[in-house]
Design a protein around this nucleic acid. Structure first.
Lengths: 193, 193
DNA sequence: GTCTATAGGCAGATAGAC
DNA sequence: GTCTATCTGCCTATAGAC
């Protein structure tokens, strides 16, 4: 595989940084936090990621790639639109652990303070999600398994916002059920009677 | 009125700090930012608010009081449930200006890093909102002007989350219409056909 | 690749004069 | 009430040894 040894460390840095950003926000964690958690020096972090901005970019890239891969799996495993939507909501619910919320939802809150390259990536994440959802919604309406008013794109945006917001508000209560109930209501509202 | 002169400064501090927190988050602004904007010294800020934590508490208190007062006005001016819900959504839309989102939505993102007194106030804000909405929803269902599945409390939570999330996601796009479209879809889904 | 040491800046906060 | 001056600590980042 000719894989260099540094790969392990970079991944572990991303793992720790990701958890920190998801729970504390981009301005709520430091290189020192990551270094301490991994028992390495701050300087070592700078070897793998030039600065916080570059670490942030890598964070969103990896998160978006994983999410995209998960959507591909959903497309492969679920064949009707309602099932795809429930699987989609489950992806969000899986994120909701250890005080975490969606990485990009958190970064949307931090948006005003983010460097441009990170901003672009966050917007692209939402765009990709909306596109995927709009496709599922359109297919469901055509097949008669879903019904809704307005454009598929509008409903897709409402769903993304609704799920992100459900995580945001559920987190202070530390209660996953709060998220799941909201997610179910959002999606069941699209079911045919 | 026997109102002391310091009142003006404290209010202006709160105004500036509020705007900063709503756009940058609680960890994204500093006493120096507020001081510079008002052309006063950081030490002057500490005279009015002992520390950042106390400033944060005052911020949420004032915001919650204003929101509560606005809900009272809605109750007085609007008499059917659908109109109240639309007025409620308008309160949110009014907040969405100059890169701002709901103060408590932003603080929900920062929740893991907040001091306890601020946490309690944020949760209370959401509780109050849910209680008000649940009351409106129940009344609307009884009167036959609204229809929905599940408990009024669950739908209330879904609405709060949906609206907060709609702001969160619309902000990176700097597009109020994105928020309004989502808000309309959420509320129109409760209308009787 | 990882370390120690350190630079340079900004954070929140305090002391004491006016 | 507001100021200047200052403290302490943490932040991101770099230099240079191993």
């Amino acid at each position: 595989m000719a894989r260099t040894a540094e790969n392990g460390t970079a991944e572990r840095i991303l793992d720790v940084a990701e958890a920190l950003v998801q729970s504390r926000g981009f301005n709520g964690f430091s290189y020192a936090d990551v270094a301490q958690e991994l028992s390495i020096s701050k300087a070592a972090l700078h070897y793998h990621f030039a600065g916080k901005a570059e670490l942030g970019e890598a964070l969103v890239d990896r998160y978006a790639a994983r999410f995209s891969a998960a959507l591909t799996v959903v497309d492969r495993d679920e064949h009707d639109a309602p099932a795809k939507l429930h699987a989609y909501a489950r992806l969000y619910a899986d994120v909701f652990k250890d005080d975490r919320m969606c990485l990009c939802g958190m970064l949307a809150a931090d948006y005003a303070t983010l460097p441009d390259p990170m901003r672009d990536r966050v917007v692209r994440f939402f765009d990709d999600n909306e596109r995927w959802l709009a496709r599922v919604l359109d297919a469901g309406r055509s097949k008669g398994t879903l019904k809704f008013h307005g454009s598929a794109r509008s409903v897709a945006r409402t769903l993304v916002g609704g799920l992100e917001g459900a995580m945001l508000v559920a987190r202070p209560y530390g209660d996953v059920r709060r998220f799941r109930t909201a997610a179910s209501l959002l999606i069941d509202g699209l079911a045919v009677d």
